[in-house]
């Protein structure tokens, strides 16, 4: 594991990113953009499912925002992986990093359950879980940058 993480840090692209003046802040900014789009669309979808937003029909809203959320998630994973790779060994040694990944895993399972279940009451509960989980992931992620 140590050697794998160490060799990730030694990749030419990652070594360039490590000391770059422009690229790293750009990757960081894209991560913020991606997370912003993801969390915002998740909250809007959850509020629609819970019933707080009623002005737009659920299907149209979900069709649009699910794409934004999935696109944001993909970009967040890509940019997050790049920043992780710069200090892979250190991040892998931080409990907070694994708490964040664990929370993302739980949020993923929650999404899976939501996609499979049809009962209205259950969907609302899962939306309630989602609306708490994703901002928590954001918060934990932000704290990661302050404890290394």
């Amino acid at each position: 594991m140590e050697t794998l993480l160490g060799s990730i840090e030694q990749l030419a692209l990652i070594k360039a990113l490590k000391t770059s003046f422009f690229a790293y802040p750009v990757v960081n900014a894209l991560h913020i953009l991606a997370v912003g789009g993801l969390v915002t669309s998740v909250i809007l979808m959850d509020l629609r499912v819970i019933g707080v937003i009623r002005s737009i029909d659920e299907q149209s809203l979900m069709r649009l925002l699910r794409r934004v959320a999935l696109g944001g998630f993909g970009l967040a994973v890509l940019t997050g992986a790049l920043m992780f790779a710069v200090r892979a060994t250190d991040y892998a040694g931080m409990p907070l990093f694994w708490i964040k990944l664990g929370l993302i895993g739980v949020a993923g399972l929650n999404f899976l359950a939501f996609s499979l279940l049809r009962a209205e009451g259950m969907r609302r509960i899962l939306a309630g879980v989602s609306i708490v989980l994703w901002p928590t992931v954001l918060l934990v992620g932000r704290f990661l940058g302050f404890v290394l």
Binding site: I50, L96, G128, V132, L133, V140
Partner: peptide, 23 residues
């Protein structure tokens, strides 16, 4: 339910985290 969800969101937003550093 809405009030409960709001309370849960606020609770989740205040975890005990280690001392801030470096900025």
């Amino acid at each position: 339910l809405r009030i409960l969800l709001l309370a849960m969101a606020l609770g989740a937003a205040m975890p005990v985290l280690p001392a801030l550093a470096h900025h």
